[in-house]
């Protein structure tokens, strides 16, 4: 069983493991709201929109996580304002912000000489380069996000399921939606080091979508999703270590593997089961 423990004798692999587990849990839980409210496009846009923040922090020599956090919060508030008062459709507004931010980020980073490697790390993650400081920041933010989800569980459930009812009960759906968007922004920032701007959306959407195929209760969906997120992260790290491939990409592909298995074999909602029950249903009438 040495092959299981061997990778984690190295300090940078230990840090990578902790970071991967944190990201796996937070993304998977927040991802449930993303999947249920069909916000995948929004999550992807938000991820790309933090690029200028990272670039500015990088150029200024401060922590890139903090730069990303500031950018993500600003963009989340911007999208929220657009959605509530804008005269153009929300997805159009997101598309414009998303592309502009990405372009601005690339433009800023292209002023640096080590442009190509830096951009690769930002776009696809650099799990093996996670430092102690990064761990503390992501850990703290992760606790904050999860605590908010627990404390405002009722309110988030209400505004995601039935904003009309939220309004008639005096619960201000706009306020809670903005809070949810801010949590999403923070979650994306936490994930940048592991999977990068380009693949964050996969960690948000894939484990949650897999869990949705396995259960129809929100709390259970979040727990299953978190479990899948952690499993994907850990297995992905092993794959990355032994095959010497990109860690972020390995994590995402493991998560995709879980999804495909559930999509085909899940009880009740999987392809096989539905094909089977369709046959059973057809028989009496035929």
């Amino acid at each position: 069983m040495d092959w299981l423990t061997e990778p984690f004798t190295l300090p940078f692999m230990q840090r990578a493991l902790i970071a991967a587990v944190i990201v796996g849990v937070v993304c998977a839980v927040l991802g449930c709201y993303v999947v249920l409210r069909s916000m995948a496009f929004l999550g992807d846009a938000l991820a790309h929109a933090v690029l200028p923040g990272i670039a500015v922090a990088y150029l200024a020599g401060t922590n890139t996580l903090l730069g990303a956090l500031v950018a993500a919060v600003l963009v989340a508030l911007g999208i929220s304002a657009f959605a509530q008062h804008g005269t153009i459709r929300e997805d159009t507004a997101i598309g414009i912000l998303f592309a502009a931010a990405l372009a601005l980020g690339v433009l800023l980073i292209s002023t640096v000489r080590t442009y190509a490697t830096d951009l690769t790390h930002i776009l696809f993650g650099d799990l093996l380069g996670v430092g102690r400081e990064d761990l503390f920041i992501s850990g703290g933010l992760a606790v904050m996000v999860l605590a908010t989800v627990v404390l405002l569980f009722k309110e988030f459930l209400l505004v995601t399921f039935d904003p009309l009812l939220a309004h008639t009960l005096g619960k201000r759906p706009g306020v809670y939606r903005t809070v949810l968007l801010l949590l999403l922004a923070v979650t994306i920032v936490i994930s940048l080091r592991t999977v990068g701007v380009g693949l964050v959306v996969a960690l948000l959407v894939t484990p949650a979508a897999t869990a949705y195929l396995l259960t129809r209760r929100l709390v259970r969906m979040m727990l299953v999703s978190a479990l899948l997120g952690v499993a994907s992260s850990v297995i992905g790290l092993y794959v990355s270590y032994y095959l010497d491939v990109s860690s972020g990409a390995a994590v995402v592909l493991v998560a995709t593997g879980f999804f495909l298995v559930a999509y085909i074999f899940a009880p009740r909602y999987g392809l096989v089961w539905r094909a089977g029950s369709a046959r059973v249903n057809r028989r009496p009438t035929a």
Partner: peptide, 11 residues
């Protein structure tokens, strides 16, 4: 949406 009948009524 992944909620039960009781969850919805409780809202």
């Amino acid at each position: 949406f992944p909620v039960s009948v009781r969850d919805v009524v409780a809202m």
